[in-house]
Design a protein around this nucleic acid. Structure first.
Lengths: 225, 225
DNA sequence: AAAGGCTCTTAAGCGAAATTTAAGCAAACC
DNA sequence: GGTTTGCTTAAATTTCGCTTAAGAGCCTTT
């Protein structure tokens, strides 16, 4: 974990830097605003977190924070400053900082707040695909070759079922149960009709269909892509 | 934006809830620990942010926070509490909270800190836009082609939800839950009416609407601008 | 206290789109 | 070649969203 600390008072800078190093962080220190700005912009991708004093000779912490946010929306920034009115805090946070500690602060609290910001958030996705067809359950979107294809509810539900079972056969009775109702009239041709709708929207002309017909059983999307 | 507030002192709870509602949040209040725990776990996915008092009858804020983190790693949690030692703060943050405010706090600071957490859960932004429409969460204003457009709370909340999810489908049930209430009568046409209001205020006559209807699903603002 | 205005919600008719049915045709299997 | 099963199309039916209008609730003004 690499941290950039911009702080002009040497005593405070050393205190924080040493404390963080003991905790296993790699710390770069900038002792004035200009140096801080340069270091931040030169190696922005290298830093996992940035600590900024507000009042600095050369360039203020606010300016540095704005410059950082222009380049990189995600790297966490914490203000450490003696400016302690509510307006200061609000202003600092609106500039793009993720947290704001009023001096004097306890080192332990700084550490705890840094760890909060470093806890990585992992967003998971629910995407199923075959060849150049992609279906995103979360956003309810289907792409074909990168371009959006508008599907109706039933079309989407049917395609989702088939893709979730890629490589496996989907029996007609199971399709009826999952996409339509358990108590759906069993001799109907809705499935055929909807398979036809999907093929019209997703197949490439004069090419084998993306979904195989299993005569007497149901349908299957192959496993090969 | 839907917020769960767990706070046993009625006066404080009302003060915060009303303030947040004026800012356009949908707020659910739990008045003791047990209720808070139940509400949090029952509808965790619906909340965009959770505010917890520490000392509560029934179950402590710490317990609630732990239970939340067991289920969901990402929803932002802020402690609001009179426990003000550094050890308390560190302990609270290590339990999984994202921020910690010592009582008494300024409402403005709470708001600013909430906005920090809400923008980082949606990509570090306070301004959302589509084509010449701009929505600023911080100032609660909407511009169309640079000119201010007056929107009501509900209109604003709906537009914000749609813009935060630009490119994604917003399902009707999700819209009802986020902008109206979790327990809102589900067969109502409020959504249609409000979409209509937004279209009247923001669309260009004889041009496709800024928001697409996804029949049977909900609405979407496209990704292309 | 009444009047007016604003926001939010409900309800109903209309029209368009989605879904289902039905029927004739084509392909596969025996 | 006959039978079964699936494909395709068009028409019938149903659902869903759009649009209006109107009423309830609340706040402000007089």
């Amino acid at each position: 974990m690499r941290v950039l600390l911009v702080e002009d008072e040497t005593a405070i800078a050393n205190f924080i830097a040493e404390g963080l190093e003991e905790e296993g962080f790699a710390v770069d220190v900038a002792h004035n605003g200009k140096e801080g700005l340069r270091m931040a912009l030169d190696n922005l991708a290298e830093y996992d977190l940035i600590l900024l004093d507000w009042m600095l000779p050369g360039a203020s912490g606010i300016e540095i924070c704005r410059a950082i946010r222009k380049e990189n929306q995600t790297v966490p920034v914490i203000f450490l400053t003696a400016k302690d009115t509510v307006d200061d805090v609000v202003f600092g946070l609106e500039t793009g900082a993720n947290d704001y500690l009023r001096k004097p602060f306890a080192f332990e609290e700084l550490l705890a707040r840094m760890r909060v910001l470093l806890r990585s958030s992992t967003g998971e996705q629910n995407i199923f695909s075959y060849a150049d067809i992609e279906l995103d359950v979360a956003t309810h979107r289907v792409l074909k070759g990168g371009k959006p294809v508008e599907l109706t509810q039933k079309e989407f539900a049917l395609l989702e079922l088939l893709l979730r079972n890629k490589g496996k056969a989907c029996r007609r009775t199971r399709i009826i149960e999952k996409v339509w109702d358990i108590n759906f009239d069993h001799d109907t041709s809705v499935i055929d009709v909807y398979i036809n709708f999907l093929r019209k929207k997703l197949d490439v002309p004069n090419q084998p269909s993306f979904v195989q017909t299993l005569r007497g059983i149901g349908y299957r999307i192959n496993d090969d892509a």
